[in-house]
Simulated assay, not measured.
Amino acid sequence: MFGQIVGEILPQAIGIALSPIPIIAAILMLLSPRARRTAPAFAVGWLLGILVVALVVMLFVPASAA
């Protein structure tokens, strides 16, 4: 059951992960004078944000809604 849910959500998650906004932000940060400090912080924050949203959806959306 969990594998089926992940299989249904995975294409959308990949689309969100590849959206141009984080890519543009990463390029701008890498070109900034403090790239060594800002780029890893952005990457960690971005991944944690996606994980939090995924966790909230998994906890609060009932399985019968799928």
Rank of each mutant, 00 (worst) to 15 (best):
M1N: 06
M1P: 06
M1L: 05
F2E: 08
G3I: 00
G3C: 02
Q4M: 09
Q4T: 15
Q4K: 10
Q4A: 11
I5D: 03
V6A: 12
V6H: 02
G7M: 00
G7T: 00
G7F: 00
E8A: 08
I9T: 07
I9F: 07
I9R: 13
L10Y: 12
L10I: 06
L10E: 13
P11D: 02
P11E: 03
A13F: 10
A13M: 14
I14Y: 02
I14R: 13
G15I: 00
I16N: 13
I16L: 08
A17K: 05
A17S: 11
L18E: 04
L18C: 07
S19T: 08
S19F: 13
S19H: 14
S19N: 14
I21T: 12
I21W: 11
P22R: 03
P22W: 03
P22S: 06
I23P: 00
I23W: 06
I23R: 03
I24Q: 03
I24V: 15
I24W: 10
I24C: 03
A25K: 15
A25C: 12
A25H: 07
I27K: 02
I27H: 03
L28F: 11
M29S: 02
L30Q: 10
L31K: 05
S32V: 04
S32E: 08
P33W: 08
P33F: 05
R34F: 14
R34I: 13
R36A: 15
R36N: 12
R37A: 09
T38K: 05
T38W: 09
T38G: 02
T38N: 08
A39R: 03
P40G: 11
P40H: 07
P40W: 01
P40I: 03
A41V: 11
A41Y: 06
F42D: 02
F42L: 07
A43C: 09
V44P: 01
V44E: 06
V44N: 06
W46F: 13
W46M: 10
W46R: 03
L47G: 14
L48K: 05
L48A: 15
G49M: 13
G49K: 05
I50G: 11
I50N: 07
L51N: 06
L51A: 15
L51D: 05
L51C: 15
V52H: 02
V52P: 01
V52G: 00
V53H: 05
A54G: 12
A54W: 04
A54F: 15
A54C: 09
L55N: 01
V56K: 07
V57G: 02
V61F: 04
A63C: 04
A63S: 08
A63V: 14
A63E: 14
A65R: 04
A65P: 01
A66T: 09
